[in-house]
Each structure stands twice: as structure tokens, then as C-alpha cells.
Design a protein around this nucleic acid. Structure first.
Length: 807
RNA sequence: GCGAAUGUGGCGGAACUGGUAGACGCACUGGAUUUAGGUUCCAGCGGUUCACACCGUGCGGGUUCGAGUCCCGCCAUUCGCACCA
């Protein structure tokens, strides 16, 4: 049977389907001693079309899932849809399609595309976050967290477009204007719901130790969480107001020459009411585009009429409103120490403030010994902090702050999980009763792209009874951030039809935590921190054991086209469907795996690489076709020819390497090249080799088994052609034979003064002295040694090299 | 701006612990087979050079018998920055 993927692949997929080959057992079906492996890929957004990034991600996951099955593991490999979010609502505004219809169509289309790839998903586990059966559990978690005291309401800025009367997402705001209509956008505080994730900040940092994750991801998370140890102290204004300030450098207190408060700080707002100049400055900052505020190093300030009093010297200190002080970090107020803080320094130079030096150290921004600091002069920075806290008495204390902010989850949108609370004139904001869940999204809404959330237009949704007093109430119209959906979805895969709970504890015990999680590096901080947080919440609710949801993490690089991210707007999309229709999925999978190491971005240069993958698969097929089946055993080592022995070594070394790549190194591109090398070696075995039959039989079996995770369809075909019944994917992974792992002879490289001058073949068993002697005797080396003094000869362990140093 | 990463032939990449730079593949060149080819097979393929040899892993320094790999300083590109998912 030739290589004919377009004909064969659908048939093989149908056979797998009929045999339920990918079904994962539930907890009750697992036997004691069963090894389990939970393989997870990040939940995709159903944009409508699959792209190459998905193909890469799912193929990698599938390679691991299939490999683990062959190693005897029970494997759970699910997929679902992150199906709430803005694009559906945008489609509704633009094309008048209901978000639910648009989303459902997209899922259908993308699922069909994924299925053509032959990924071994257990589709019985499929979930979609936009279905009430799913999002009711978001609501359930919200209520549990409310009970736990982990939900609160507070003010935070949103992107407000006055002309549209709408809140906009960051990505909709370009240069301080609505991307679509060009109307100006300002920062406006709005009352919102929050999850108190900062309660878990310390634990999120500490648990990194348990994780087999890339170091760079852990580092990014550490910086994101941003723990700072320092002190909080009160400054008093001349009008008697107390202003708390957090500082990591209390030791520089004598160097304070100004204070800077956020433009959103309540005292600044109050002062602005009687200070038109200050008000204008605050308006200017509120209207600054997000990029400008975040990404420029331009420090802007405005000197208010407020004055603070230095707690030790009693000197009056000017108070500025400044764009670089953030209201949601620390206390929204900083003490300005221009001599010892880089940003304060730039600010002081710009506004002509004094810059007195109070620390003697090598680098002005680092700790040292205090000078010009009254009674504290001469102390080290460390000692001074304790002394100052003591001297300041009740108005100062040691404190810790985090850059991590509490998780604002309110969205003023339709296509998301309704937040299950009720506004009651008598009781205030009241959580819904658990038995009333799910609070369903209403259908009778209009999508116009301006004004408040569409939910505010649905009378049937708005009118409800207060869960506490039973009086008339108004339902909350905010929906949840879609990050809530993706913060626990992998647990729902364990028990997707459960109508009593998000999942049964027994299922969590059987499968959690996830053994390997694969997804994009772009999720390094937000999603992966929220998901870890939710897992700790689930643990604290007694729903699962353990601290961390994802034991091992692999982050993929992006798939680019001509150096750019593939995107509709650039018109550089390569459609996987077209490739599969032309080359079949095995060739696409093989090429995706082979093209680049997984953590690197890969540029989709065109179809030439796939031609190469196809050539390789065709060549293997031909080798199997040309091979007459043989059931003779392979004779003992001594009976084989030198060529046959060398091939046996190559076969088993390759098997060893591929097994290692798949189980430990998680390096996949080299796995493919090893297979190609082995195929080349098999092709070189002479047709008249005396034991060709049994050697080739076993070699082709091993190659087919190793190919199976990457190109599973062809592997099934070849497996049957090699005389085996049943599925290759259910066959056991081959074991390598230790007697064939070491070659009889090795090449020893001879260097003279660091340059390679010769190579000699030596028995692998040669001693260090024998290698040294042979190297010195080698004619090519002699040529470079002659007439010179030998300073030393280095023979490093490993036996592959001798380095001679001459003068 | 802040945080994280990446940089090796014409191209994608390999080199796992500091030890043969360029495995494997693509593209290209020459040859053979074929009625034909998006077929197959053989050979070549970093640069300079007749050769010996020398140069060569983004750039500039350093450590070492030996550096793509380690250290210091730059440059370029990519990802993230809290309402995109």
C-alpha cells in the first residue's frame, strides 16, 4: 500500500473513533496501580478558523499523549472552548449575528478542523465556557469566594468614552481615542468587583519551588507579583491631613525634598476643586493614552498648594501631583528622595528641587551609611530603618507591598458570565442564592455598540427579588472577566457533565494536578497566575489536594509568517485546512514538530518544508513495501557482520535518544532528525547483507513505533503492513537493548594548541594512556608538534579527544 | 519605560556537562533513471584559497589547553505590562 494520506487518514480516524481509542477512564474505572498522565493544552478561543499556532500546540501535546499511552499510562487529553469574550459581541454589533450563534458556528467549524489533524482528544470531555452548564460554576465559585471574604467592591479606573457612553477595553483604545470611532477616551473611576488575590501573593511566590516550569516564566511571575519589603509611615500635611506612604528606603528619610501623589489620590482631587491649574493637570493625565502613561519615561508633575511636614526636621515639603505615581500601587503617595532614587532624581532636576545627599555608598541608588541625618548619621541603612521606625513610634511600621493588584473582574459587557448579585434598595448588594444558579444570560437584548452594557436593556433580566428580604431588586448587569472561565476549566474536564458540583473530589484525586501543560508564552503572567490562584481557592474549599495545578509547563514560541504574527489584518494567514487537504495531516504534523524547537518562534516560510516531510514519509512507506516479512530471530552479536553490528548500534542508540527526547528533554525537532538519520542508515544496509531479513524487520517495527506519536495515521498503516494486527497506537513502546548502546570503535580527535589536527579510530575500551600515546604518534599531529616543546597533554574524560599544548 | 527571552551557512535548525561547529531537513548545482513529473537515485554545497592554510556562531572585550556554550559591556528582534484571549 503506497503513501496516500488523503485516502488513508480519514479511514484511520474513523477506525480510532469506532474503537473509542482516545477515551480516558473516569476515576471509578481506574484500577489500583494504574499510572495516569494528564496532558493539557491551553483552552483556545473559537475565532472561527484554526491557525498554525494551534496546530503546533496540539500536535506537541498529542505527541506526548500518544507516547505516554504507548508507555502504559492512562492518558487524559481533552479540548474545549474559551467561548465568552469581546469578538462575539463585536460580530453582533457589526453583522447583527447573535453572539451565541456566531460562537456556536465557530466552534463547529474549528472542531472539524482539529479533528482532521488526528489529535487524540477524548471528545466526551469537551466543554464550552459560554454554556450555562459551565458558567453556572463560575457563579458558584463567585458565591463561595464571597462567603470566604475573597470578593469585595471598590473603585478602579476604566477606559471611558463619553461620546459612546461605554467602557472600552485597552485594545480598543489607540492614542487615547476609540479605535473604531475616534472619540476621546478618559480614565474614569467606576465601582467594580474584585477577587482578593493579593491575600495569596506570598503563597504564589513560595510555591514556585514546587514547579517544573521554565525559569523565565517563574521569574516573570516573581516580578509581576513584585514583593517589596519596606516601611509604611505617616506624613502630616500642614492642614492636619495624615498621608500614609510606603517606602523601601526609610533610611533616606532625611533626603526627602518633595512628596508626589497620584493624580487620582483623594487629597489631590480635593485640592483640585479650588485649584484650576491642578484640575487641568489631573485632566491632562486622565486623558493621556495608556501607552504614554505606561511607556514613557517623561515625569510630569504639578505643584499643589498642599504642604507636608517632615516628621523629624519639621521642614515644610512641597506636594506634587505626578503622573508616575500609581493609585493602585502602595498607597498612591511617595516620598521624593532625589539623591537616592533614579525617578525622583529626574523629577527633582526637572522641577528645580534640592537634592541633598544622605547616604554614603558606591552607587547612589543603593544602601550604605547615613550622612546628614541627624542622630542617625553614621548608621548603616539597615540599622537606620529599625531606629527610625522606633523613633517614629506609632506613625511608622515595617510593611510589605506587592505590585500584584487585586483582580478586577467586572466587565460592562453582555457576552460573559453574569455576576450573581442583586442590588436591593434596602439590603444593598446581595449575593444570589446558590439554588437560583445559573443566572442565565437573557436573549432579548440589543447590540448597538454604545451606551451601557446590553444587559441593562433586558427588563426580564433586570427585575428580580432580593435574595435576602424578598423585596424588588435589580440584577447586577456586570459580567465576569473571561479569565475567570480559564482559571479552572481543566478541572471541569475531569467531570464535565456533573450537575451537582464543578467536579467530583474523586476525579480530582485521580487526575489532578496536570502532568504537562503546553501553551503560549504570552500567558506567562496573567492566565498562569490567575489559574494558580484559583487552584489554591479550590484547595481551600476542600475540592482538591495539593497546592499547584500544573506540574510541568512548556511555553511555545509563536508561529510567524515573514517575521510577523499571522493575523487577518496583515492578510498573512496560512490555513491549516488547505495544507491538510493537500499533504495530509501526518506531513503537516511532522513538519511542525521538525521546523524549530518548541520554545522558539517559527517562521512559516512556505510549503517547501512540508515537501521534505512528505518525502520522508513516502520513503519509509517504500522501505516497508520493499521489505519481505521475516519472522527469523536476529542472531547473536558475534554472528553479524561489522556493517550489521554498526546498524544495530545505530538503531538502539536512536531508540534511546528518541525515548529520552520524549520523556525527559521534551525536545521534538531532534527526535524527527534522529528518525531521519536512522532511515538513512537503514537505506545504506547492503541488499545482500546475510542477516538483512530479521534486522530490517525489527528495525522497521521500531521506526514505525517511534513514528507513531508524530505521524500516527501512517504508523497504523505501516504497522499492519509489517504483519501486526490492531492499532500501532496501542502497541508497547520498544525497549532498547543495552548490548547495542556502545559502539566497538570510537573516533578520537587530536587537537594541537586548540586546533583540530587529526582524527584516529580507536577501540572504545582504550585507556587514557593508550589514547595519549596514539595521539602523540599520529602523523597529522606530529607535523604540528615537530621541533616544539610539549607543555602538556590534556585527556578529558569521555575518551573522544586529546588536546596537546606545545610551545 | 519596566520585566522576560532570542541572535549559528542562502533558509529552518543541530551541537545535552566548556571538548570534532554546521547533524537532520529545505533551497540550490551537477549527473543518472523516467513518455511525463511537485517522481526516484548518486554527488556537491559556510567564506577566502590551485594547494598548504587561514577566517567563521549579532558586535566589542575577558576567563580557559580549549568558548556557539561561562563572565562583563553594547546592538537588533520577539513576548508581556493587569478591560484581547
Amino acid at each position: 500500500m503506497p503513501f496516500d494520506p488523503l485516502q488513508q487518514e480519514p479511514q484511520i480516524q474513523q477506525r480510532w473513533d469506532e474503537a473509542q481509542a482516545f477515551r480516558a477512564p473516569h476515576a471509578s474505572e481506574l484500577k489500583p496501580g494504574d499510572k495516569t498522565f494528564y496532558m493539557l493544552v491551553m483552552l483556545p478561543y473559537p475565532s472561527g478558523r484554526l491557525h498554525m499556532g494551534h496546530v503546533r500546540n496540539y500536535t506537541l501535546g498529542d505527541v506526548i499523549a500518544r507516547f505516554r499511552r504507548m508507555r502504559g499510562y492512562k492518558v487524559l487529553n481533552p479540548l474545549g472552548w474559551d467561548s465568552f469574550g469581546m469578538p462575539a459581541e463585536n460580530a453582533a454589533i457589526k453583522h447583527g449575528i447573535h453572539p451565541a450563534v456566531w460562537t456556536k458556528n465557530n466552534i463547529k467549524e474549528m472542531k472539524a478542523q482539529v479533528q482532521k489533524l488526528g489529535i487524540s482528544y477524548d471528545w466526551d470531555r469537551e466543554i464550552a465556557t459560554c454554556l450555562p452548564e459551565y458558567y453556572r460554576w463560575n457563579q458558584w465559585f463567585f458565591l463561595k469566594m464571597w462567603e470566604k471574604g475573597d470578593v469585595f467592591r471598590a473603585m478602579r479606573n476604566v477606559n471611558w468614552c463619553e461620546a459612546l457612553g461605554t467602557v472600552l477595553a485597552n485594545e480598543q483604545v489607540v492614542d487615547g481615542k476609540d479605535e473604531r470611532t475616534g472619540h476621546p477616551v478618559v480614565q474614569k473611576p467606576m465601582e467594580q468587583y474584585f477577587f482578593a488575590i493579593t491575600k495569596y501573593a506570598d503563597e504564589l511566590l513560595a510555591c514556585h519551588d514546587q514547579l517544573d516550569w521554565p525559569e523565565n516564566v517563574k521569574t516573570m511571575q516573581r516580578h509581576w507579583i513584585g514583593k517589596s519589603v519596606g516601611a509604611r509611615l505617616q506624613f502630616t500635611f500642614t492642614d492636619g491631613k495624615q498621608v500614609p506612604v510606603f517606602t523601601t528606603r526609610l533610611d533616606t528619610l532625611y533626603g526627602v525634598t518633595f512628596m508626589a501623589l497620584s493624580t487620582e489620590h483623594p487629597f489631590i482631587k480635593e485640592a483640585a476643586q479650588t485649584d484650576p491649574g491642578l484640575q487641568a493637570f489631573c485632566d491632562q493625565v486622565a486623558g493621556m493614552s495608556r501607552e504614554d502613561r505606561l511607556m514613557s519615561d517623561i515625569k510630569l508633575g504639578y505643584r499643589s498648594r498642599l504642604e507636608a511636614v517632615h516628621p523629624f526636621t519639621g521642614e515644610k515639603i512641597p506636594v506634587f501631583a505626578a503622573n508616575y505615581v500609581l493609585m493602585d500601587y502602595g498607597t498612591g503617595a511617595v516620598m521624593g528622595v532625589p539623591a537616592h532614587d533614579e525617578r525622583d532624581n529626574a523629577f527633582a532636576l526637572k522641577y528645580g528641587l534640592p537634592i541633598p545627599k544622605v547616604i554614603e555608598s558606591e552607587n547612589p541608588w543603593e544602601e550604605g551609611v547615613l550622612v546628614n541625618s541627624g542622630e542617625f548619621t553614621g548608621m548603616t541603612s539597615e540599622a537606620a530603618v529599625d531606629a527610625m521606625v522606633a523613633k517614629l513610634g506609632g506613625s511608622a511600621e515595617r510593611a510589605v507591598t506587592f505590585k500584584l493588584k487585586d483582580w478586577g473582574l467586572s466587565r460592562q459587557r453582555y457576552w460573559g458570565t453574569p455576576i450573581p448579585t442583586v442590588h436591593c434598595p434596602a439590603c444593598g448588594v446581595v449575593p444570589e442564592k446558590a439554588e437560583n444558579l445559573p443566572i442565565r444570560l437573557p436573549e432579548d437584548v440589543a447590540f448597538v455598540g454604545k451606551g451601557a452594557s446590553p444587559l441593562t436593556t433586558s427588563k426580564s433580566f433586570l427585575d428580580c427579588a432580593c435574595p435576602r428580604c424578598g423585596g424588588p431588586g435589580r440584577r447586577e448587569t456586570d459580567t465576569m472577566d473571561t479569565f475567570v472561565d480559564s482559571s479552572w476549566y481543566w478541572m471541569r474536564y475531569l467531570d464535565p457533565r456533573n450537575s451537582e458540583a464543578p467536579f467530583a473530589k474523586a476525579e480530582a484525586d485521580a487526575w489532578s494536578p496536570v502532568d504537562l501543560y503546553i501553551g503560549g508564552i504570552e500567558h506567562a503572567t496573567m492566565h498562569l497566575i490567575y489559574a494558580r490562584y484559583f487552584y489554591k481557592i479550590m484547595r481551600d474549599l476542600g475540592m482538591t489536594e495539593g497546592d499547584e495545578p500544573f506540574k510541568k509547563l512548556i511555553c511555545l514560541g509563536m508561529v510567524l509568517k515573514d517575521g510577523f504574527k499571522m493575523s487577518k489584518s496583515k492578510g498573512n494567514i496560512v490555513d491549516p485546512d488547505e495544507v491538510v487537504a493537500h499533504y495530509g495531516s501526518d506531513a503537516l504534523r511532522l513538519f511542525m514538530i521538525f521546523a524549530a524547537p518548541i520554545e522558539k518562534e517559527v517562521d512559516w516560510t512556505g510549503f517547501e518544508g512540508i515537501d521534505g516531510a512528505t518525502r520522508f514519509l513516502r520513503r519509509l512507506t517504500r522501505m516497508v513495501e520493499d521489505h519481505p516479512l521475516c519472522s527469523d530471530p536476529i542472531p547473536a552479536k558475534d554472528a553479524l557482520t561489522a556493517e550489521e553490528r554498526a546498524l544495530q548500534v545505530k538503531i538502539h542508540q536512536t531508540l534511546h535518544k528518541v525515548t529520552d527526547d520524549l520523556s525527559h528533554r521534551y525536545q521534538f525537532n531532534t527526535l524527527v532528525s534522529s528518525l531521519m538519520e536512522l532511515a538513512n542508515a537503514l537505506g545504506d544496509l547492503p541488499k545482500d547483507a546475510p542477516h538483512r531479513g530479521p534486522i530490517m524487520q525489527r528495525a522497521l517495527e521500531i521506526v514505525t513505533l517511534m513514528l507513531s506519536p508524530v505521524a500516527p495515521h501512517l504508523a497504523e498503516q505501516l504497522w499492519n503492513q509489517l504483519g501486526h494486527e490492531g492499532f500501532c497506537m496501542h502497541a508497547a513502546w520498544p525497549e532498547c537493548d543495552p548490548q547495542w548502546l556502545t559502539a566497538d570503535e570510537v573516533t578520537v580527535v587530536i587537537q594541537v594548541n586548540g586546533k583540530v589536527r587529526g582524527r584516529i579510530m580507536m577501540p572504545a575500551s582504550a585507556t587514557e594512556d593508550e589514547r595519549r600515546a596514539a595521539a602523540l604518534a599520529c602523523p597529522e599531529a606530529q607535523h604540528h608538534i615537530e621541533g616544539k616543546e610539549i607543555v602538556k597533554v590534556v585527556v578529558p574524560p569521555g575518551g573522544k579527544l586529546v588536546s596537546i599544548v606545545v610551545k
